Simulated assay, not measured.
Amino acid sequence: MKKYRYTSTLTIAGFDPSGGAGIQADIKTISALGCFATSVLTALPVQNTMGVNTIYPIPYKAVKEQIAVILEDIFPDALKIGMVHTCELVNTIVNTLGKYPKIPLVFDPVMVATSGHKLIEDETIQSIVNKLFPIADIITPNLDEAEILANMKIETIEDMYLAGKKIKGLGAKNILLKGGHLKTARLTSLFFSGDGKVYEFHFKKYDTKNTHGSGCSLSSAIASYLAQGKSMLDAVTLGQDYTKEAIYHGRDVIIGKGNGPLNHFFNPQKLIKNELVH
């Protein structure tokens, strides 16, 4: 009898008790796109749709052991890293992953929540640039995060181009710079590819507050498509299409009193099975 395994994607990220962002959004996205989701918890924020109250850390030893126990048993086809809010956590993740074979890695530099709350310690930024950027195949900052990384204000698409070049100079291989916060009629994002090309994407903006966890969902979608063997450009394109549709299908639903979640399961896929070769 033939035996199979599921295409799997691992998320290393923080918790969201409201279920719209963080590791919950990652698991929903990965599952909706037909991949088997495994997860490692990095932090325990106390938050809801209206904002973040406080962040409780997960012991670094526990993070290290979580990563090890998954990679030794269910080795993923791709990996997404989200909330990494201390230098010690950066070191723990990078040092632990370094012991295993390299896989496609998407890093979402979560620094600012949809509500505007800052989620990262200032001294951690340089550690992220020095240690996580080199091992990440793509980073996916929003404009707030890009402003921190590029040390500049971003108010126009021209500013986005300049910021992307500055962030590329920090050592990022590929960058998807998300322009959802620009005051423009359409949503524009820029993909700075590893070969030096820049691709513009334009999407319709929807009149909705339900964008909580959109960045987490997008980075997890890109990781899931990479796990399925898509090229980086295709994964970026398909990941954005998925996120746009998830926002559209959840735009008129009221969940909570603040920024509501996406509809991750507007078109769920069956888990992808791959035949095991002995």
Rank of each mutant, 00 (worst) to 15 (best):
Y6H: 14
Y6Q: 13
F15K: 06
A21K: 02
I23P: 01
D26P: 07
D26I: 03
I27Y: 05
S31W: 08
G34Q: 10
F36D: 03
T38Q: 08
S39Y: 14
S39D: 12
V40E: 00
T42C: 10
P45L: 05
P45N: 04
P45C: 11
I55E: 01
Y56M: 13
E65R: 07
I67N: 10
V69S: 15
P76H: 08
P76L: 12
G82H: 07
G82F: 06
M83L: 15
H85W: 09
C87E: 15
L105F: 06
A113R: 12
T114I: 09
L119E: 05
D122S: 15
T124R: 05
A136L: 06
P141F: 04
P141V: 04
N142Y: 10
N142G: 12
E158M: 07
E158W: 00
D159M: 11
G164V: 10
G164E: 02
I175V: 00
L176S: 03
K178W: 05
K183Q: 14
T188L: 05
F191K: 08
F191A: 10
S193E: 04
D195T: 00
Y199L: 07
F203V: 01
K205D: 06
Y206V: 10
Y206L: 14
K209G: 05
N210Y: 09
K230H: 12
S231N: 08
L233V: 13
T237Q: 11
Q240G: 02
D241T: 10
A246G: 08
A246T: 06
G250Q: 03
I254C: 01
I255N: 08
G258F: 01
N259P: 03
N263W: 02
K273P: 03
N274L: 15
L276T: 11
H278E: 14
